[in-house]
Design a protein around this nucleic acid. Structure first.
Lengths: 120, 120
DNA sequence: TACAAGTATAGACTATACTCTAATGTTGTA
DNA sequence: TACAACATTAGAGTATAGTCTATACTTGTA
């Protein structure tokens, strides 16, 4: 598929998709048999990748972290050990974030309690 | 205390503290009895606020969200209902983030399992 | 008193992650 | 065939959150 279809399927603008391509997160292929243009063609794996990018971004991963994560999953040039190491690192950072969020939740709940008790 | 002491206590640079002041997150007081300078003076509440800013930032809150949160806690110009509304909103967004993080954790765990099973 | 250290303000610079514009060329349909 | 819609690249612009520099004045200590 071409960029516009990819954009429609994922809900990510063509501009942003090109930005991700330049950032090395996804890679379109050019059809060598067609000489009249140099349009990029994308496959279903790219759709998957863009969905992963969106999910990972929503939990606070940066572009470069997402790059590492996708390399660990899609790139066959790195070893199993290296892949597992990257994935473990991400799992640890997620656990830390969950822990911090729970602390923040506790703090805000206490704020709320204090606000209600002091003023009613 | 002056900005340098505040910086030492909190571990936040004077530059960043001034940035937070310009952003409206904290507010120093000027000593009207001193005419020779216009140094800002900070109290313990500012130390508390800077610690809250650091914690809230670490879980992904933006400066403006932190501003709302601190208004709900420190500002007596808004009603109890408004404060509770802001705090509830933050609690909901934290729960959403935790939910998303748990999903991401599940996905990465599955990646890891697949990587190990397919390659060993 | 000299001078190092501290303070304030304005504004320039950086990094991340887009977002948009301009210029130019290609494709598909009335 | 005209022309709207789509594609590419380069590069400019935006927002967020700092980070740093320059300039100028003040304070504390040898």
């Amino acid at each position: 598929m071409l960029i516009n279809e990819l954009s429609k399927i994922t809900g990510i603008t063509a501009h942003t998709i090109r930005f991700y391509e330049k950032s090395g997160l996804i890679k379109g292929k050019r059809d060598e048999t067609v000489k009249s243009n140099n349009y990029f063609h994308y496959d279903d794996e790219t759709v998957e990748k863009l969905e992963l990018i969106r999910d990972a971004k929503s939990v606070g991963f940066t572009i470069s972290e997402i790059g590492e994560l996708m390399d660990a999953w899609y790139n066959n040039k790195i070893t199993v050990e290296e892949k597992v190491a990257v994935l473990d690192e991400k799992l640890i950072s997620i656990d830390e974030r969950i822990k911090q969020l729970k602390q923040m939740k506790k703090m805000i709940s206490q704020f709320k309690k204090d606000v209600i008790e002091d003023n009613c």
